[in-house]
């Protein structure tokens, strides 16, 4: 087993994978990397299964020291990573020699970066996944849902490949203001005509009330005119509108069922981009029908083949 020791961490540094599946009917949330796209690229760089366990570092404040020579990979936000003070850009695999320190400082571009290791970081699977869900006390290094803590050891047992980069043309552009695609849902027709115009024709500002359960968007007040709803299953990326008329996009740690009306759900790629936005950032929403979103997602998956 190749090892790293955590020198610094925060409650926002978590072991994650793609999340828990087959257990939603028990009230267990999905969990998993908030930017699933960057997690996949971090794993791809090492020839891992795309859903192997990675470290999700949000905003920075994380550091590891190598106990052995390591080959690691980084994808997602630029959090000002440095190896012994030398800058390290994401979207590549790299060598961290025994004794070297890899440190993540502060967000320069994006919010979350994914650190991967050959074969994935070793962790017990709880209900089929190592994803850390603090609220549910599931996953993580000890299986009890704790964030990564200073002094803990990260280990992996996979074989190292040669160092490589994600081709430039395939890297998600975190700086681009591409609108976020929303697959239109069944209640879309029950919002006022003005609201439907406003949703897709005005800018939305990310509120500071944002976590792995949901991100609140501030902007024009949306008006739902339908009947009150009975709680029902909530998909990843659902855009729900509570009575205050300000939408909330639901992320990986969302509740499994809920009763607010919905505009629809962000596509996985749109959600990955939203997860890289900091509070105060502006986003725009764009309607898309399910068939088109499906085709685009299949095309995206071809990138990894």
């Amino acid at each position: 087993m190749t090892r790293l020791t955590i020198e610094a961490s925060t409650p926002l540094c978590l072991l994650q994978d793609a999340g828990r599946f087959g257990v939603r009917h028990l009230g267990v949330t999905q969990g998993g990397a908030a930017d699933g796209c960057s997690m996949s690229w971090a794993n791809w760089l090492l020839g891992n299964a795309l859903n192997a366990a990675v470290v999700e570092i949000t905003l920075g404040g994380f550091a590891v020291v190598a106990e052995d020579d390591c080959l690691l990979a980084l994808a997602g936000a630029d959090l000002g990573a440095q190896i012994d003070g030398q800058p390290l850009a994401p979207w590549r695999s790299f060598i961290l020699l025994k004794g070297q320190i890899l440190r993540f400082n502060q967000p320069l571009l994006g919010a979350r970066v994914y650190l991967a290791a050959p074969g994935g970081f070793a962790a017990p699977k709880v209900l089929g996944s190592s994803a850390t869900v603090v609220r549910e006390a599931l996953g993580g290094l000890d299986g009890m849902g704790l964030p990564l803590a200073k002094g803990a050891t990260l280990g992996y047992g996979g074989e190292a490949l040669a160092v490589r980069e994600v081709p430039l043309t395939l890297r998600p552009d975190l700086a681009a203001g591409t609108p976020l695609d929303v697959v239109l849902g069944a209640q879309i027709g029950q919002f006022s005509g003005q609201s439907l115009f406003d949703v897709f024709n005005s800018a939305w500002t990310l509120d500071s009330r944002a976590d792995r359960m949901g991100i609140r968007l501030l902007g024009k007040t949306l008006e739902y005119q339908g009947q009150p709803m009975i709680s029902e299953g909530i998909p990843l990326g659902a855009v729900q509108v509570p009575p205050d008329g300000q939408p909330i996009v639901l992320l990986n740690d969302r509740q499994t069922i809920g009763g607010y009306p919905r505009l629809g759900a962000l596509t996985p790629l749109a959600l990955a981009r939203l997860a890289q936005c900091l509070p105060g950032a502006q986003v725009r929403l764009r309607p898309v029908v399910q068939e088109v979103a499906h085709r685009e997602h299949i095309e995206y998956l071809q990138c990894f083949v």
Partner: peptide, 21 residues
């Protein structure tokens, strides 16, 4: 992938790599 029952609904989450909508 998941079947989420609630009071009046069943949400079907299926593998989109195998099935078209």
């Amino acid at each position: 992938i998941d079947l989420v029952p609630s009071y009046t609904t069943l949400m079907v989450h299926y593998d989109l790599t195998v099935l078209y909508p």
